[in-house]
Design a protein around this nucleic acid. Structure first.
Lengths: 248, 248
DNA sequence: CAAACGCCTTGATCCGGATCAACTGAAAGG
DNA sequence: CCTTTCAGTTGATCCGGATCAAGGCGTTTG
C-alpha cells in the first residue's frame, strides 16, 4: 500500500457530509463555487503523519472523515496531545506558514484542502469564511480551556470518563443527556494516544478503563468498541457539573 | 474604599498605552473615532471579581493596565486558572452572552469597555476589528495549547520556571533571550493563584520557588519582587527547547 | 496596644499515578 | 507453520506532589 497521501477526485460540495458545519458553512452560491474550484482532497492512513511541527504548511484544510491529532513532543520524549480534529474541524492558520504542532492521522482520514494563497485572498475579499473561522476558533479556545481544567485538576478516572463522554457526545450528536438507553461508538485512539491526550501513562489508562468496566460504567467490546449503558452514569464520573449548568 | 468598580473619565485613544496591540490596533480615523465614542473605562481593585461564570455579560473589554485571571471552579472547590489577561488582552466573545469563566482582577485593573450591541454592529460593518480579533484569538489558542503541555507533562519545577519565564518575557517585552544581564519584575499573583494556574498546590509552589532561589535561578525580593540574574539559566529550567526552535 | 487576618514557609506523612517488568492474544509476515 | 510485532493487561514497587499541621511575618482592625 502506498505510504503517501492519496489525492482523490473532488466530490460535489452539495453532497459533502460536513457542508453545514465546516469553514464553508456560511458560504453560498458564488463563494461556494470559488471554494469548490480551489479545493482538493487528500487521504491518509491511520498512523500516518500529516505535518511535522515547524514544517512549512502551504495549505489549510477541513477534516471530512476520520480523526487527526495535534500534539507536541518535548526534547526528552514526553508527549502531550493538544487537540483532536474531528470531521468538520479546521486545520491551519491564515497568516502563519509554520505548523506549530505535529499533526497525525489517528484513523484513516480524508481532508478537504485549499492552497494557502487563494484561500487567504478569498478571506480578504469576502466576509463569510473569516466570520466562520472566528467562530470556530473561539469554540476551539473554549474547548482548550475546558481541557486545561481536565489536565490540571481531574483525577485519572475523571479524565478517562471525560474523554469517553466527550467522544460519545460528539459521535452521537446529542447535545446533553437527551438520548436515553445505551450509546456505543468506536474509540479512535489507542491506549497510548489516550494517555497522551489526558496527561497520563498508558498503564494508568488501561487500569482505569478496566475499573470503569468493573463498575459497569462502560462495556468494552471487540475491536475498541465502547458501549455506554447509561450516559448519565458516565457523566457523573467526569467531575463536571452533571446538572445543566447552562452554558452557551 | 468603594467595593464597586469605578468609572473613569475617558482618555484620548491617541495616548492609550495599548493603542497598537489591542483590539483597536488596526483601526484608524473614522473607525477609531467610532470606538472612542462608545468606549468607557472601568476600574477594579486587586481581588475584586469582574464577572462570574454564567453571568450575562453585556460588554466586551480590553485590559488597559493590571492583570485579570480567567478561572473555573469544580463543584468540590478544585480550581483551575485557564488564562491570564495582561494589558492589551481582550475579554468577551461576540455572539455569546454568558461568561464561560470567572474573571477576577489579580492586581488593580483598568479596562476599556464597549457595550456589546454597538461593538457587534461595528464588527459587522467594518473589517478591521474582526480581523484583529481573529488574530488575537488564534494567538490565545496557541498559548492555551502550550499551557496544556505544561499542565499535562511538566514537573512542578518546570511549571514554576515556565510561568516566571513567561511573565519575565512579557513584562520586559523581549522576544527571546535578547537582553543580557538581570531582569526584574513584580509577580502579579499570590502563591495560591500561581498554584491555580499551574495545576499545583500552594505548598508545592512555595517549595519550588525557594528551590529555584537556593539554586540561584531567581532572587526573591521584598513585596513579590522577582530578580532573574540570568534569563537563559531560567529558560533551561522550563523543559522547553532552549535553542531557537523557530516558531512563528 | 493586642487580636485577627492574609500571605507565605516549613515539616511530616500519605497516596495516586509513574515506572519497571512480565505476560497475553491477535494480526502480520516469512 | 513459527516468529515477530503491536495493542493491551496486570503486578510490584517507587516517588513527586498532595495533604495535614504548625508557625512566622507584616498589615489591618478594633
Amino acid at each position: 500500500m502506498s505510504l503517501h497521501a492519496l489525492k482523490l477526485a473532488p466530490q460535489d460540495c452539495g453532497d459533502c457530509p460536513i457542508r453545514h458545519r465546516a469553514i464553508c458553512a456560511r458560504c453560498d452560491g458564488p463563494e461556494l463555487a470559488r471554494l469548490e474550484e480551489m479545493k482538493y482532497y487528500r487521504s491518509f492512513q491511520a498512523g500516518q503523519n500529516v505535518v511535522w511541527s515547524g514544517d512549512r504548511m502551504d495549505f489549510v484544510a477541513s477534516v471530512v472523515t476520520g480523526v487527526a491529532s495535534l500534539s507536541q513532543t518535548m526534547e526528552d520524549g514526553r508527549r502531550q496531545m493538544v487537540g483532536l480534529l474531528l470531521p468538520s474541524d479546521f486545520l491551519g492558520r491564515p497568516g502563519r506558514i509554520a505548523a506549530p504542532f505535529d499533526v497525525t492521522a489517528t484513523t484513516d482520514l480524508v481532508m478537504c484542502c485549499f492552497r494557502r494563497k487563494p484561500f487567504e485572498d478569498m478571506m480578504a475579499a469576502t466576509p463569510h469564511v473569516a466570520q466562520r473561522l472566528l467562530e470556530m476558533t473561539l469554540d476551539e479556545l473554549d474547548a482548550a480551556r475546558e481541557w486545561m481544567v481536565l489536565l490540571g485538576r481531574k483525577t485519572a478516572r475523571e479524565k478517562i470518563a471525560s474523554l469517553l463522554a466527550s467522544l460519545a457526545r460528539r459521535d452521537t450528536g446529542l447535545k446533553a443527556h437527551v438520548a436515553r438507553g445505551p450509546i456505543s461508538f468506536d474509540l479512535p485512539l489507542t491506549r497510548e494516544e489516550m494517555a497522551d491526550y489526558l496527561g497520563l501513562t498508558l498503564e494508568t489508562v488501561s487500569r482505569q478503563m478496566n475499573a470503569l468496566k468493573r463498575d459497569g460504567v462502560v462495556k468494552l467490546g471487540e475491536k475498541r468498541r465502547i458501549v455506554v449503558p447509561d450516559f448519565d452514569l458516565l457523566a457523573r464520573q467526569t467531575g463536571d457539573d452533571t446538572d445543566g449548568g447552562f452554558r452557551s
